[in-house]
């Protein structure tokens, strides 16, 4: 589904990504782990085209999307939910969803507001509320729902649990499972290991812009030494 090869990216003069490679199969869920500043967010921004990678290949569904415009990549079926959520605070819930709407894709039932309200019941009660008057958890749900309106085949979730109360994080676990049931491949960046382990099958650890470890989530769960080394747990 998605294969990233030797991705390099710079922010100004800082060499943030120094050869990131990973791949994720259709229907799978992969988590990128690593501390703050390791390069998880920059990886996502490079994938969606908000940061122009300096070199490397990004193959999405067989086509190379590295260096393309964000809207081209999004229309190709790559969805992105940023770490800061970036809800349009002046727009209502329904309008936020409208901005994210893209045509349906072959062989996949399109996401509609009604279908999304099934996964995020909190949103159903606040269709006309401006995004700015929602709590952090509700905004996070709206951000995900908005991206799903584009009927992505793969969704990038940047720290979806950050700053959320544990009880909301639990709802997020269910939402991600529902997404996967809907046929969406998931790649998420996380710091909350418990959350990551609850939703992903594969994990990749990024450290200082490089891949430090890759494997199955179960291995990570079993190996305390590994966690200690790379995640300082």
């Amino acid at each position: 589904m998605l294969r990233v090869d030797a991705l390099h990216a710079h922010y100004g003069r800082a060499h943030i990504l120094q050869g990131v490679s990973f791949s994720v199969a259709k229907g799978d869920a992969l988590v990128l782990l690593g501390r703050n500043g390791a390069g998880k967010s920059t990886t996502f921004k490079s994938l969606i085209g908000l940061v122009r990678p300096t070199s490397g290949r990004i193959a999405f569904d067989g086509q190379d999307i590295a260096g393309h415009e964000p809207h081209v990549i999004a229309r190709a079926g790559l969805g992105y939910v940023p770490e800061e959520r970036r809800i349009f605070t002046d727009l209502t819930v329904m309008e936020n969803l409208e901005v994210g709407r893209l045509p349906a894709r072959d062989g996949q039932p399109p996401w509609t507001p009604e279908r999304l309200f099934g996964i995020f019941p909190n949103l159903a009660a606040m269709r006309t509320r401006p995004g700015g008057r929602m709590s952090g958890g509700e905004q996070q749900m709206l951000a995900i729902a908005r991206t799903l309106m584009g009927n992505p085949r793969l969704i990038l979730l940047d720290e979806p649990s950050e700053g959320l109360a544990p009880v909301i994080v639990e709802q997020m676990v269910h939402a991600i499972r529902a997404m996967r049931d809907g046929g969406v491949t998931v790649v998420l960046a996380e710091q909350n290991l418990h959350f990551a382990l609850a939703v992903a099958d594969h994990a990749t650890i990024i450290e200082k812009g490089r891949i430090a470890w890759a494997g199955r989530v179960a291995e990570l769960q079993a190996d305390a030494g590994l966690r200690e080394t790379w995640l300082a747990l």
């Binding site: 969606i48 085209g49 908000l50 415009e69 964000p70 809207h71 999004a74 229309r75 992105y80 940023p82 970036r86 349009f88 605070t89 002046d90 727009l91 309008e95 936020n96 409208e98 901005v99 994210g100 893209l102 908005r146 991206t147 584009g150």
Partner: peptide
Amino acid sequence: TLVRAATQDREMVAALGV
């Protein structure tokens, strides 16, 4: 609607396929 969204955050609008 797209214009109002872009007024706030044009990068995000682009990332949503506009």
